[in-house]
């Protein structure tokens, strides 16, 4: 279990970075989908909502094909690197963050926007005020995004390759130990995975609940 620390650190680094990138994509995109008025809005929302249930192995397959040495992005030599896992996990988490952001903002009273404009808010100030107003469900969206990637195994395995010391994360390590019949090690890793997931979500929950006035 000497490699437990680097595996855990890599899991956290990869999943947190993927969640952060998903937030940078999902928060503005979800806002546009929630507040915008354009012809294909409902269609795009349906795509995002479908994307929330994307099977990680399908994402893994797609990203692997893209990054494969002979694939369109093969020249970047990213397959079986942590970057490949981050890309795959971002594709998994971004629809979750986007969809839940849109849902959070759509739950607000639509007349609130009129009221904010009527009080002299610019468009940016209006959006910031709405984000602040929906901060509890937005943090829940962030937690759901993180939860969807820290726990996935299919994509990480397919694009990371579970290479010891390089791309092995907690979930892929659990799969490996189970396949070897090393159940004690697998259970220990599982407990560790659950513990860090709990700790991260606990920290986010504290921030979320502190936001309640």
């Amino acid at each position: 279990m000497a490699d437990l620390f680097p595996i855990t650190l890599l899991s956290l680094q990869v999943s947190m970075l993927a969640t952060l990138i998903s937030l940078l994509i999902g928060l503005p995109l979800g806002t546009v989908l929630a507040l915008g008025k354009f012809p294909v809005r409902s269609f795009l929302l349906s795509i995002i909502n479908t994307g929330m249930a994307l099977p990680p192995v399908v994402v893994g397959l797609f990203v692997a094909m893209m990054l494969w040495r002979s694939g369109p992005l093969g020249d970047f030599r990213l397959i079986y690197t942590p970057v490949a896992i981050i890309i795959a996990q971002t594709i998994i988490a971004a629809p979750v963050v986007t969809g839940l952001t849109a849902a959070a903002l759509q739950q607000l009273n639509p007349r609130l926007r009129l009221q904010l404009y009527g009080l002299g808010a610019s468009r940016t100030q209006m959006v910031l005020a709405l984000w602040r107003e929906a901060r509890l469900p937005l943090l829940a969206a962030l937690m759901a995004g993180f939860g969807s990637v820290i726990s996935e195994v299919g994509a990480s395995m397919m694009v990371g390759g579970n290479i010891r010391g390089q791309t092995r994360v907690l979930t892929t390590a659990i799969v490996l130990e189970t396949s070897k019949g090393e159940f004690e090690r697998a259970i220990a890793l599982s407990v560790f995975l659950l513990t860090i997931t709990f700790l991260v979500n606990w920290a986010l929950t504290i921030i979320q609940q502190r936001g309640r006035s």
Binding site: N109, R111, Q115, G118, G120, S122, R132, E133, R212
Partner: peptide, 21 residues
């Protein structure tokens, strides 16, 4: 529009207060 809106104020039927103090 922004300059105009900053010279007026509106009160709607619902108070629509923010989740703040």
């Amino acid at each position: 529009t922004l300059e105009y809106r900053r010279r007026i104020a509106l009160v709607l039927q619902e108070p629509l207060l923010l989740d703040a103090s």
